[in-house]
Design a protein around this nucleic acid. Structure first.
Lengths: 106, 106
DNA sequence: ACAATAAATAAGTGTATCATAATATAAGTG
DNA sequence: CACTTATATTATGATACACTTATTTATTGT
């Protein structure tokens, strides 16, 4: 049985995770299509380790999933997420990665 | 015109506000009915100044509103909130204040 | 095996944020 | 007016968190 306190705790953790500009930006790109880490690094204005750390948090929370292929790791939105998370992601702009022609991963 | 970056910024600020256990707990009580500060102080396990500060943040964000009556200040959920915030509040347990018989405010 | 590239992890640092204690404001009451 | 009660504000300290740099792990190609 899940107490009300635990439920509020759980919800606040997830919302805290989503209440970060960098992570929301990552999701706004991933909502369009699966992307590899290097593409996300190219598009965001933070370092590669920062991106990796954010992706790990989103993955551990079950919001995104990873797919490894050779050297590259591709991330995409998870299908099974709570409804209120879906609504938040829907509220995000749909951003596209442009001009990754010089990258081998795509 | 609102750029995509501004939209993500705005969203992350609001979600950061909601990603706090104390504030979510406040909302879980307010979703049932309007309550005065002293009732919320009674129910939560934090100091009165802490409650006041959280209520102020929620009010400035437009999520709750205040109604002053004599010495007491009553807070309640705002009607006009973004859909995704409504969905989050719906996901909260509906908690009730019990046994405030010794308080004059209700 | 060695070099190169992609991604993850570790360690360190600055800043934001939540909580408390102390104080101030404001309204009601004798 | 003095006194009490309800709430807000200020100041401050502790913790959390996001970022950076440096390093490590893992995979591919020569």
């Amino acid at each position: 049985m899940v107490t009300e306190l635990e439920r509020v705790s759980e919800l606040s953790s997830l919302l805290k995770l989503l209440g970060d500009k960098t992570r929301l930006t990552l999701l706004s790109y991933l909502k369009h299509k699966e992307l590899c880490v290097c593409e996300l690094v190219d598009v965001l204005n933070v370092s590669q380790p920062a991106i990796s750390q954010h992706l790990k948090k989103l993955r551990l929370a079950g919001i995104i999933q990873e797919r490894k292929q050779g050297t590259w790791v591709y991330y995409s939105l998870n299908e099974n997420i709570p409804n209120y998370v879906s609504v938040i992601i829907d509220a995000l702009p749909d951003q596209k990665v442009e001009g990754c022609g010089n990258l081998e991963c795509c």
